[in-house]
């Protein structure tokens, strides 16, 4: 499972284990699964797709501005606004 955190300046919105997250990057969407290589990208305004399990429905979270950081520990999205 992928450890996923969504943080805004106001608070920590999400911190949970998920299957996959699709992030709207500035240069195109990218999906992050467990074990993704270390990576950092700015994001454009759009929807984050969070899939809790392989077959499950994806949940949409609207985010605005910020960047995504993938480390061996997981994925952290720092958004200026979320939800």
């Amino acid at each position: 499972m992928l450890h996923f955190e969504l943080v805004t300046p106001e608070k920590l919105v999400r911190s949970e284990s998920v299957y996959m997250v699709t992030v709207p990057g500035t240069e195109g969407d990218f999906g992050v699964l467990e074990g993704h290589a270390p990576f950092m990208s700015t994001i454009r305004d759009g929807d984050l797709l969070v899939q809790r399990s392989e077959k499950g429905e994806a949940e949409r979270i609207a985010i605005r501005g910020g960047f995504a950081e993938v480390t061996p520990k997981g994925l952290t999205i720092l958004a200026e606004q979320a939800g």
Binding site: G25, T26, E27, A37, P38, F39, M40, S41, T42, F67, E69, T71
Partner: peptide, 20 residues
């Protein structure tokens, strides 16, 4: 520890820094 050389940046380090 996250400041390793293997991290990939998109668009580029400078661009990310400028927006940050």
């Amino acid at each position: 520890p996250s400041a390793d050389a293997v991290v990939e940046y998109e668009p580029s380090e400078e661009a990310i820094l400028d927006s940050l």
